[in-house]
Amino acid sequence: MALLEVKDLKVRVEEREILHGLTLTVNEGEIHAIMGPNGSGKSTLSHVIAGKPGYEVTDGQILFKGEDLLEMAPEERAAKGVFLAFQYPVEIPGVTTMNFLRTALNAQRKARGETELMVPDFLKKVREVSKSLNIPQDMLKRGVNVGFSGGEKKRNEVLQMALFEPSLCILDEMDSGLDIDALRIAADGVNALHSPKRAMVVITHYQRLLNYIVPDIVHVMSKGRVVKSGGKELALELEASGYAQFEDAA
């Protein structure tokens, strides 16, 4: 079943069109990779799906579980299961990671009409997940991402993903800035979340990540469009010959 359907999406930022009619369908249980040169609009797509202000959708639509996603407030999208692991996670001084996780989780649960998670259950869950991601407990007592290394920030994104159990995970360059070991840990974390009901959209520049998170479908984006889709071998092809061959297609 289609989880996410992006149809002929046109998006402007400050009077300039960035996405020029982008189409993408992601089914439940699938892993998609999106590759493409700098500035081709990958982050823009992820922001529009998550509902970041400042983008004007001039045409096309986005359906999530059959519902019009563009009609929903961004926090509503989150509660419905859209998760974006940011390319550049922000720092929130004075708000401990633990407090942030709990506040966010309960906000989502409340929006879904669920009860708050009891503190002991919550703590147990956080402990389990953070352990599997090699995140030390005292990191959770620090301000959200404050003084975290690049790798720690990315792992913190995966931690949240594991905790919130979203149905659509968009990972924007989660491999950037990670050393080989950190990459494997984060990728293992992502793989552990793979399930028949959950889909992943992995944005990356490097085929290397796709050795760990193996995609069902690879898309090539160029100049605001998906210009080619194929199997995981497409990533290898790109690695060998670069994006130039697709520029004309766009």
Binding site: A50, G51, K52, P53, G54, A73, P74, E75, A78, A79, F83, L84, F86, Y88, P89, V90, E91, I92, P93, G94, V95, F100, T103, A104, L105, A107, Q108, A111, G143, Q160, F164
Partner: peptide
Amino acid sequence: EDVLFYCIQRGLSQEEAVGLVVNG
């Protein structure tokens, strides 16, 4: 704006996000 959107993407409303950031 980026900090607020980060919180909102995690399920907080705009007002809750401001409250959280300010309390921090």
